[in-house]
Amino acid sequence: MASQGTKRSYEQMETDGERQNATEIRASVGKMIGGIGRFYIQMCTELKLSDYEGRLIQNSLTIERMVLSAFDERRNKYLEEHPSAGKDPKKTGGPIYRRVNGKWMRELILYDKEEIRRIWRQANNGDDATAGLTHMMIWHSNLNDATYQRTRALVRTGMDPRMCSLMQGSTLPRRSGAAGAAVKGVGTMVMELVRMIKRGINDRNFWRGENGRKTRIAYERMCNILKGKFQTAAQKAMMDQVRESRNPGNAEFEDLTFLARSALILRGSVAHKSCLPACVYGPAVASGYDFEREGYSLVGIDPFRLLQNSQVYSLIRPNENPAHKSQLVWMACHSAAFEDLRVLSFIKGTKVLPRGKLSTRGVQIASNENMETMESSTLELRSRYWAIRTRSGGNTNQQRASAGQISIQPTFSVQRNLPFDRTTIMAAFNGNTEGRTSDMRTEIIRMMESARPEDVSFQGRGVFELSDEKAASPIVPSFDMSNEGSYFFGDNAEEYDN
């Protein structure tokens, strides 16, 4: 783990906690998980779902989305002020799938948001429990990260689609708070800032007046979040320049895209947490497990152990491969979309394939898809080993990566060399080191050039047997250095459309 220093740990961010010791953190995270579980059980009762239907990941996603929508204050306010045809701002819903006479049927349900809020609060001892809501947002974000390569979004903001390893959390809503900021990748933060800068260039009043003052505060806050992700002084200094700019424009845009590229080699610290679907927490609570009393951590053995003992089902389209669908969801559960496939294969105990080789589309089923041909199958979400999630980018030494994705962002704290394609990355730096950030740029390029592919990161860190909950005997895996390590390699994943 990167030293926490003055930073709060993510469990504290996750639970809005002030400084807590490890036991208190485990208890408050457990409380959050228990609340999600209780809410899910109650919703299944309301909807009269069978046990099997309640364990269907598509039903879980609909129920999670309903509660997130019920608590989305800004959108609710907007919907009330701008009524649109056929949208009731006070209601929320989605597809629920039921097994009827041996076939899967889709039923569109509609609930009062007020009623959903009441059920959620009741499951969370009367609190709004925003930490639990954020947790579900991060699960949705991790699922998107594993399912889609955001080529269009990258290109629109002047970045290269091969930089997708920097895009963790790119679909997280803005209201996801400190826990959300911690899991956002460098590219995601750059993209958010670039969008602001572009608006400022096109709209003279963007930075002016009372609204402009708020915009400015948001801009500086985002700059500080991004600065905190960088691990070298030169990158941090460049972020200070971007933040202090009187009138952010093209120079800042250039600096930010430069920094994003540099992060492929001088990786930023991005938190990883295993956020599971509500249909995993519900049955665990129903079986009598007391998360608050037992304590829970999002970055240790607990999620692995929970998945070892969970039964989750998914709808499967006619030509999809259930094992591939399982891999997709497994990666999402562990926030591992940008991790090295060699490491993932070792931990999972079966070969993890790149996205383009998977015969599976996303987990969600569109409303126009034919239910007649839908089957369902068990998702295999178990693992051979477990490993500690990392909050750091690993040290800054790398190795060759593949054509589709030119770097990785480690999820697990496991000893290995970190793949990246130096030639491709360095070719993108057209040696432009003039301007006010020239000395920093020169320094950053120097550090990137001296990074050695064969150097090892996370020295001495290994994986653990599932029986080793105290992480007492690390097993340090050895990897084939020459092997392909990137998930979005030469990829044809669908595009994420909101």
Rank of each mutant, 00 (worst) to 15 (best):
227 K>F: 09
484 E>G: 09
265 I>Q: 01
269 S>E: 08
86 G>H: 14
316 I>M: 14
270 V>C: 05
422 R>Y: 15
32 M>V: 11
92 T>G: 01
144 N>F: 07
243 R>D: 01
251 A>F: 11
163 M>E: 01
100 V>K: 13
257 T>I: 14
155 V>S: 07
409 Q>W: 03
79 L>M: 10
134 T>S: 15
226 L>H: 12
397 N>V: 13
63 I>C: 13
5 G>R: 15
438 S>C: 12
42 Q>P: 08
216 R>F: 06
224 N>C: 14
210 E>R: 02
441 R>K: 09
476 V>C: 10
479 F>L: 11
318 P>M: 05
15 T>G: 00
297 S>P: 10
361 R>G: 12
220 E>G: 12
411 T>W: 04
464 F>L: 10
261 R>D: 08
402 S>G: 08
380 E>K: 10
373 T>A: 14
425 I>L: 07
276 L>P: 06
83 P>R: 11
95 P>E: 04
55 R>K: 15
96 I>P: 01
426 M>V: 08
101 N>A: 00
262 S>P: 10
245 S>A: 15
147 T>K: 04
451 A>M: 14
478 S>M: 05
252 E>P: 13
463 V>K: 09
394 G>A: 09
75 R>T: 10
361 R>K: 12
246 R>C: 06
430 N>D: 05
154 L>S: 07
137 M>A: 02
416 R>I: 10
162 R>Q: 07
305 R>S: 13
34 G>W: 09
340 D>L: 01
343 V>C: 10
488 F>N: 04
423 T>A: 13
379 L>H: 10
398 Q>S: 09
71 F>H: 08
13 M>S: 00
491 D>H: 12
350 T>A: 15
422 R>H: 02
138 I>F: 12
467 S>L: 09
227 K>I: 11
349 G>W: 10
342 R>G: 07
429 F>D: 06
386 W>M: 11
338 F>L: 08
355 R>H: 04
411 T>K: 13
412 F>M: 05
63 I>D: 03
331 M>Q: 07
244 E>I: 05
47 L>A: 06
415 Q>C: 14
486 S>R: 03
228 G>S: 10
265 I>E: 04
301 I>G: 07
41 I>R: 07
34 G>V: 07
